[in-house]
Amino acid sequence: MTEETVTPHYCIGCGAQIQTVDKTAAGYIPASALKKNLAAEDVYCQRCFRLRHYNEISDVRLSDDDFLRLLTQLSEADALIVNVIDIFDFNGSLIPGLHRFVGDNPVLLVGNKVDVLPKSVKRGKVKQWLQQQAHAAGLRPVDVLLTSAKNGYQLDELLQAIDHYRAGRDVYVVGVTNVGKSTLINRIIKQATGTQNLITTSRFPGTTLDKIEIPLADGQQLIDTPGIIHHQQMAHYLGQRDLKLVTPKKPIKPRTYQLDSGQTLFLGGVGRFDYEQGPHSGFTLYFDNNLYIHRTKLSNATDFYSRQLGKLLQPPRPKEVATLPALKRIQFTPEEKSDVVFAGLGWITVPAGATVSGWAPKGVAVTLRTALI
């Protein structure tokens, strides 16, 4: 039995119970570091340690109970809600039920990772599309902005919009895991101060178990919240090495395939697209440039997948095959040009009237939406 089990310890920075098991959960600290810090009695979790010494905010994940508690806080607050979503994975990065909890608080929708969209895509059209998708999900944002936490695209415009719409109130920054929310927060801190080393621990007096409060010049707070788990994201079913193979970091180069009915495209080993019925047509794919695409006959697809998963069809790598859920099929016949979206992976634009099926690991959402491009 470990000492952690016998005598619980708590981070003096955020109050989370110290644990050495889950790097993504609150209170994590490497076991070796815990032994060193126990002697000094001042134990900081890894998240608070990085905040104190490097001014880096790292995400932690919320349990379902914590998620409900956070949403309740939003409904009780008088604040601007900045909802960060992943443009590349809009459906997978929506916070389930957010529109029911924001009350009368204004919501500023921020589309992150604009840098991975094809360069030919018009930004104005993307903003309009995001607005439409948000409305369809029940969210009514006061404005939509595009940014890139990676390269700081339009960060000044974002800061101006936040200052305008908050109207002297606090700001809550919310988002699901893997949307780049904490990277964006760190960008904002650096932009606002001019240097990462200017902000010290004393500037973060409101650090708590579930949020970090960053003082603003007028005495209000910019509140960074933990990343909320969206269980339909591909990220929850792949290891870190495999995830890097399907997560775009450079502008996507669309790939168009001319297909006849009865043909299948495999998206590595983590997705499948069947063209079941319709005339010879072009289908444009928007996935990471390095994701392997394999074309085969629909009649042979199931047998081919069972033989080649983890071999020709990667990711997943061979040792990750056993943990990947079986692929589940969803069929669509869109009435207009549409995207078949594989949450966290990408999408395929299909023509009106085509009968197609999208397959993804059970638990990962496959949905149909109005074409983005």
Rank of each mutant, 00 (worst) to 15 (best):
Met1Val: 06
Thr2His: 07
Thr2Pro: 10
Thr7Phe: 10
His9Trp: 11
Cys11Glu: 01
Gly15Ser: 05
Gln17Lys: 09
Ile18Ala: 02
Thr20Gln: 08
Asp22Val: 09
Thr24Asn: 10
Asn37Phe: 04
Ala39Val: 06
Glu41Val: 00
Val43Trp: 01
Tyr44Asp: 03
Cys45Ser: 02
Cys48Ala: 05
Leu51Phe: 10
Arg52Asp: 06
Tyr54Phe: 14
Asn55Tyr: 05
Val60Ser: 09
Arg61Gly: 12
Asp64Asn: 04
Asp65Gly: 00
Phe67Val: 00
Leu71Thr: 03
Thr72Lys: 13
Thr72Glu: 15
Leu74Met: 12
Ala77Trp: 08
Asp86Arg: 06
Phe88Asp: 10
Gly92Thr: 07
Leu94Met: 14
Phe101Glu: 07
Val102His: 03
Asn105Tyr: 02
Asn105Gln: 09
Val107Met: 13
Leu108Met: 12
Leu109Lys: 10
Asn112Trp: 13
Lys122Cys: 00
Val126Asp: 07
Lys127His: 01
Gln128Ala: 09
Gln133Leu: 05
Leu139Gly: 03
Pro141Trp: 10
Leu145Phe: 10
Leu145His: 12
Leu146Val: 05
Leu146Tyr: 08
Ser148Phe: 06
Ala149Ser: 14
His164Thr: 15
Val174Arg: 05
Val176Thr: 10
Lys181Trp: 04
Lys181Thr: 11
Lys190Phe: 14
Thr195Ile: 00
Asn197Val: 05
Leu198Val: 11
Ser202Ile: 01
Pro205Tyr: 04
Leu209Arg: 10
Lys211Thr: 11
Ile214Ser: 05
Leu216Ser: 02
Ala217Ser: 10
Gly219Pro: 10
Thr225Val: 06
Gly227Trp: 04
Ile229Cys: 02
His231Pro: 02
Gln232Ser: 11
Gln233Cys: 05
Met234Glu: 12
Ala235Glu: 15
Ala235Ile: 04
His236Trp: 14
Leu238Ile: 07
Lys244Ser: 13
Lys249Ala: 02
Arg255Asp: 12
Gln258Cys: 05
Leu259Gly: 06
Leu259Arg: 03
Asp260Trp: 00
Gln263Arg: 15
Val270Cys: 11
Gly271Met: 15
Gly271Trp: 12
Phe273Ser: 13
Phe273Cys: 12
Gly278Glu: 06
Gly282Arg: 15
Tyr286Arg: 03
Tyr286Glu: 06
Thr296Met: 15
Leu298Pro: 11
Ser299Glu: 14
Ala301Arg: 11
Asp303Thr: 14
Asp303Val: 13
Leu309Glu: 10
Leu309Cys: 08
Gly310Met: 07
Gly310Ile: 10
Arg317Ile: 11
Arg317Cys: 05
Pro318His: 11
Pro318Glu: 04
Arg329Gln: 14
Ile330Ser: 09
Thr333Val: 03
Pro334Ser: 02
Pro334Ala: 03
Glu335Val: 05
Ser338Tyr: 02
Ser338Leu: 04
Phe342Arg: 08
Ala343Phe: 13
Gly344Phe: 09
Trp347Arg: 14
Ile348Asn: 07
Ser357Ile: 04
Gly358Gln: 14
Lys362Val: 01
Lys362Asn: 10
Gly363Arg: 02
Thr367Gly: 04
Arg369Ile: 01
Thr370Asn: 08
Ala371Lys: 01
Ile373Trp: 00
Ile373Met: 02
